[in-house]
Design a protein around this nucleic acid. Sequence first.
DNA 1: AAAAGATGTGCAAACGTTTGCGCGAAATTA
DNA 2: TAATTTCGCGCAAACGTTTGCACATCTTTT
Lengths: 340, 340
Amino acid sequence: MIPDKPTTIKEIAKILKISVSTVSRALNDHSSIGLTTKMRVKKLAAELNYEPNQRAIQFLHGKSFVIGVILPELSESFFSAAISGIEDVAYKRNYTVLLAQSHDDAEREKILVAKMKTQRVDGLLVSVSKTTSTYEHFDVFKKSNIPVVFFDRIPPIKDIHYVSSNLETGTFDAVNFLLKKGHRTIGMINGPNTLLASHERKEGYIKAMTANRLKFDPSLILNCDLSEEGTIAAMDTMLNHRRKPTAIVTFNDYVALFAMRYAKSLNLQDIDFVSYANLPIINYMDHTPIASVEQFPYKQGKKAADILIDLINKPKNESGTEQAYYNVIVESELILSNRK
Amino acid sequence: MIPDKPTTIKEIAKILKISVSTVSRALNDHSSIGLTTKMRVKKLAAELNYEPNQRAIQFLHGKSFVIGVILPELSESFFSAAISGIEDVAYKRNYTVLLAQSHDDAEREKILVAKMKTQRVDGLLVSVSKTTSTYEHFDVFKKSNIPVVFFDRIPPIKDIHYVSSNLETGTFDAVNFLLKKGHRTIGMINGPNTLLASHERKEGYIKAMTANRLKFDPSLILNCDLSEEGTIAAMDTMLNHRRKPTAIVTFNDYVALFAMRYAKSLNLQDIDFVSYANLPIINYMDHTPIASVEQFPYKQGKKAADILIDLINKPKNESGTEQAYYNVIVESELILSNRK
DNA sequence: AAAAGATGTGCAAACGTTTGCGCGAAATTA
DNA sequence: TAATTTCGCGCAAACGTTTGCACATCTTTT
């Protein structure tokens, strides 16, 4: 009836009339404990449903085996896939995940970072919020020598660990694929130039063209604010271009959807689209891009978590040696649609 | 240069030549500490960037302010929305979230439950895995008087707290809506009968028919394994029915997609579909259901988290009084498509 | 002037566990 | 047999914080 307080090592010691240290060592299979004692201890521990109090242990060691994760929006498929990867790694390496979302609000992100610090996480994994423009709130971690790994949305500052995807190669493959398929006029509805990702896409496009000894026509790459209206405007420009594209690469699946819908409303069924995989269900749709560049959020999450835990367990940086920073690029990859 | 160990209360005490207890009380605004002392302590604490070691405090109190959350699949939109709600509540009520996913694997779920116990979470929030058929692994929590709240996928056992959605009313509204729209023959592609959710849908359907003084034709409700093949088979049966339906209610968005695609391939454009909202992007598609039953995963998550934290902070159940169980139903609701 | 109350502070225990050190007893070596 | 090693175990400190209790000083009240 009594809400049984968890069994402690002390109680076991008292019952067995041995010291707590012996019990502790016995449970941890320490070499200096006799086999018989070990057996007795373990047997009783099992009977009493003994569970070591992690909080006490963590407190003693000053380690928590907890990693903090701050993401912009948990319900976005990219991030939920990433957190899935993070959790899987943490699980395997015996860490647990303390989760928080910034809702793309810089203020909330600041509070969360402080909270994570207070909770004494062993390390922090962050994809920064869209509205974050200063990065001093991460300094407390650096000062305390607690590793921070950024991923996907990485801040434009020096001396940080990060994992992100390289969209250039994926784009190269995408354009190359379209060229091999016979297309000669390939348009691109790109994102705003303020995004690093837009530049990577553009670079990939250009390299694919030149690699195929084709002239690069800058007017075939259009910027777009990623909204439906912006997409339609870009499409209009594209379709009225003196060289009307027969294939279009779009910045993301939403843009692809808008563009395809618009093309269809104009009864244009003959344009091939290639996009970047953001949405898991795009394959269920009536008209899908014929290929998409996959960014492997799950893999990125895994990689970032692995790096973070490596950093946590790294021997203290010997004074003098320059700290090395992990800058990991997860290659993106062209995936052909499995539907005809 | 030295990776500064966090400041402790002891150091403050030593510098100020007062005892640790005084420092502790000063920082906690205890009434028995002189104003001047308080000021001195707080000033120095601020200068040294003192942060109370939560781990020590938690250890001392035997409370962690952490709630465990075990979900089947973080990357499913329903669950990622739910975790978002959970996190928001936890954030507001000063708890943190320890997250884990079972990947719909009963074995992994068991391990995770044990791990959560070991981590000494203050409470547990669970949506059980599809493959879970026994529920003894939750007993350890009950024995230790740590509250567990189930949500959405709740186990078929007695004496548990849970939050789930009532699909009956949503279905009622859906069918009613179709009837008002003039439909008289309404089919339903339901899920397998093993799911509670299938029964709720069926009940809602029946009640809507009888409420409109229409005869209920059981042969218009088909079970389906939710796969594409199963959906197509159901559609075939449906379309060859002597009373060919003019509208169909489907178990979920995937089924709706399969069914709509199949209907389209047969050049049947005149069937109205209603579904249950699982997929956020369905609104971007070419053909969308004209309405869907929303289950508010975010809201469900919030509610479940609130209940859990209430339970945690509830005064110990006075021996004798029967424990009351929260059984909360979040009503589902019919949402009309915003596209024509 | 003595007793009683505030007021401000310190002592020490407690939370559960690990671990360096020491010590006695048994087993091995010289 | 004496000297040494190995084995098995206990003592006590440490981690950072809170808190009941006691104590000293100062201010009231009788």
